[in-house]
């Protein structure tokens, strides 16, 4: 469908993400909350991995650490072979620019920009020339089924459409790693389903490693692997039936 090559040829390749004994605590005033303690985890490339668990158990914190948005107190994070814990903030920005995409619960779109501009904006910072940025943005928007709406601003889009634009924005960079935190929780069932399908397709067709935090039970049918967390630890780690694994 697109000229894009899957980045990871086989799912058995070396893990895209590896956490080794990471610990994270938050201190507010005199209260110290140990959110993660000695957590180790390995995520394979080209898979859609789902993390679920009760509120406040540390899912978002784990995502922030694995994506290089937050520092760890102890342990190491290896992403695509780089040790994120050893990079300074500037190098982390560069790493994220080249390799990671994000989808948040809120859509976080600029009210003044239309869908095409939202998606093209980060591409300019990647150094793509105008024409190429436009083309890639169109391609991404097409992939999420937003081609008829590329000239509309967020104010003129539905919630589901906004989230699709946000996904296109993350996708247009051709990231190896895509992080999504509760991407469907602000949406109704039908729109949630569309978003899930899109994330699923991204992992399958582009070989993107998708790490998604969600409570949404519908998502479990699409995941290659399901992790459930509690109190900063991983309680269970289940793989989907091989039937879901066919390419």
């Amino acid at each position: 469908m697109s000229a894009r090559e899957p980045r990871r040829a086989t799912p058995e390749a070396s893990p895209a993400l590896r956490a080794e004994g990471i610990a994270k605590a938050f201190v507010s005033g005199k209260v110290r909350t140990q959110v993660l303690e000695g957590l180790s985890l390995s995520i394979d490339a080209g898979e859609l991995t789902l993390i679920s668990g009760p509120s406040g158990c540390g899912k978002s914190t784990l995502l922030a650490i694995l994506s290089g948005l937050q520092k760890v107190d102890a342990g190491r994070v290896l992403a695509l072979g780089s040790d994120l814990t050893a990079l300074d903030s500037h190098a982390l920005e560069r790493f994220r620019l080249r390799h990671t995409g994000f989808v948040f619960q809120g859509f976080n779109l600029f009210p003044a920009l239309n869908a095409l501009e939202q998606v093209a904006l980060p591409l300019h910072y990647l150094g793509l020339p105008d024409r190429q940025a436009q083309e890639r943005a169109m391609q991404s928007l097409d992939e999420v089924g937003m081609t008829p709406r590329i000239h509309l601003r967020p104010g003129e889009l539905s919630g589901g459409e906004k989230q699709r634009v946000a996904i296109a924005r993350a996708l247009a960079k051709h990231p190896e790693l895509l992080f999504a935190d509760e991407p469907t929780s602000a949406l109704d069932a039908a729109n949630g389903q569309i978003i899930i399908d899109i994330l699923h397709r991204i992992a399958r067709s582009h070989g993107t490693t998708v790490l998604c935090v969600s409570h949404d039970p519908r998502l479990t049918h699409h995941a290659d692997r399901m992790l459930s967390m509690e109190d900063g630890r991983i309680l269970s780690d289940r793989r989907a039936e091989p039937l879901h694994h066919e390419a």
């Binding site: 920005e93 620019l97 990671t100 994000f102 948040f104 809120g106 976080n108 980060p122």
Partner: peptide, 18 residues
């Protein structure tokens, strides 16, 4: 007012300097 949007750009790797 646009802090969340700026933060998203930063998450996607757009530098603070930009």
């Amino acid at each position: 007012g646009s802090a969340r949007e700026y933060a998203t750009l930063n998450a996607l790797g757009v530098g603070l300097r930009n």
